[in-house]
Design a binder for these strands. Structure first.
Lengths: 248, 248
DNA sequence: AGGTCCAACTTGTCCTATAAGCTGATGACA
DNA sequence: TGTCATCAGCTTATAGGACAAGTTGGACCT
């Protein structure tokens, strides 16, 4: 990925404020912290044994995710969950698998609304350079069908390439936010998603429509791809749930 | 607005780090700071006469907007503009009117893709409570046609109410990000947008479709509304540009 | 020429102190 | 008794200095 600041599998050594923010968020989600009343800088500092600077940056992080409201003089308050920034990979990482599953569905709904149109827009103004990169990504994907993690990286790259070709910074940013999809779906299914082979075929269909500068075709191909993609995820999730039930 | 942490017209006394971040961003946009090389904590601290804590938080803000990359030991680097977080009201506020104008168009494109569907989804599961609130907002808008600023506040509230009724946290968050639209369009047209009266009529059409639980009708009404809305904005912008040209 | 290692620079964290803003309780006054 | 001004005690905002830890590029050695 050209864009990602996050390295593929690197042991993410997160800074202290991020770790503390994760702890606090999980505590808020679990209901351990009553709504509307979050710990102050000093309390965080004492409880986690960190300096006030770190406690401060922790609150800044939570505030930037719209999890809490911070203002001078007032005490920190937890904001309603509906207003949290669910587009942030950071927050997603901290949420329990159950909620992430729901969000994954909502994300899919969003993609269905946007991506087919993005593909159509991209088809209209497609350049040879972009086509070349897309071709390259498809080749890489078909070589990576044995390595789901790497595959999904390139998959996202492919979709972002199309998005960028649609030439709309706002939509580009929105789709970029969907970059947690890969990680999250892996967290759900907890193993290799099936159907990578079919995915490659579908990507090729999209590519062909883009080569032909055919907006309607690109839109349709993308719609099919997303639909299949999601069915696979749901099926995987179902299988895993059943397995979990059997173990009990 | 239930959601807004930003007070309507309050003289926003921004914190020092935000002010400095605004300065730096403007400097980066203007090209004064060469790409890939941003000032360090100490340099910011010295140049703006602020403490290192403030300089540090400044960089944290810029990093959270994906304007720069920060990591221990490495110097701060400016990221490609295409990757900045254009969904953030903070960033929008710092950008020159010219770029904001472009973004406004891209935002409209996004709304056209999402809001009609949101309206349809909302129509399917519409509750009486939501209808009541929507009715109330329409009444307030028609009373506020003389006060564009206040009108636009309620306008956004109305659209968010529908979005919330569609029951999708991801889409809700995306539309919430569009809250800078009002302010930004005012920055562009620099005066009362015309056609508030027609907007009220269109809102009522949407409302009627929602009352009837008619997804297709809601979708169509929303589409009309957005289209008219944007034409008005473009017309206003054109008028203003012409005026500016005459002054020269 | 190539590789090793270190010095300089950068961000991460800690400590302490003061300024500025909010809240609730106390108490004066009507 | 009710109302309002005031203030003490809490909170965050900013400052300055110190050390730890990570990165980079150049000096130095082989």
């Amino acid at each position: 990925m050209q864009r990602g600041q996050e390295s593929p599998d690197a042991v993410k050594v997160r800074t202290l404020p991020v770790q503390v923010a994760a702890h606090l968020t999980r505590r808020i989600v679990s209901g351990e912290i009553e709504d509307g009343r979050a710990p102050s800088e000093l309390e965080i500092s004492r409880e986690f044994g960190v300096s006030r600077v770190v406690a401060r940056e922790t609150l800044k992080i939570l505030a930037s995710l719209d999890i809490v409201d911070v203002a001078q003089g007032r005490r920190v308050v937890v904001r309603p969950r509906a207003e949290w920034d669910y587009l942030s990979p950071l927050l997603i990482e901290w949420l329990p698998a159950e909620i992430v599953g729901e969000l994954l569905q909502e994300l899919h709904q969003m993609r269905v609304l946007l991506e087919p149109e993005l593909a159509a827009m991209a088809a209209a103004g497609m350049t040879d350079e972009t086509l070349h990169r897309l071709r390259d990504e498809i080749d890489r994907m078909s070589a990576l069908e044995g390595d789901p993690n790497a595959y999904l990286e390139v998959d996202h790259e492919f979709h972002m390439e199309i998005c960028r070709a649609a030439d709309n910074r706002i939509l580009d940013r929105i789709m970029y936010s969907a970059r947690w999809l890969g990680t999250a779906s892996r967290r759900i299914t907890n193993e290799a998603p099936a159907g990578l082979c079919r995915a490659t075929a579908e990507h090729t269909e999209i590519y062909d429509a883009l080569v032909a500068r055919d907006p309607a075709g690109a839109r349709a191909a993308m719609r099919r791809h997303l639909s299949n993609n999601y069915s696979t995820l749901v099926a995987e999730k179902g299988k895993q749930t059943k397995r979990a039930a059997r173990r009990r």
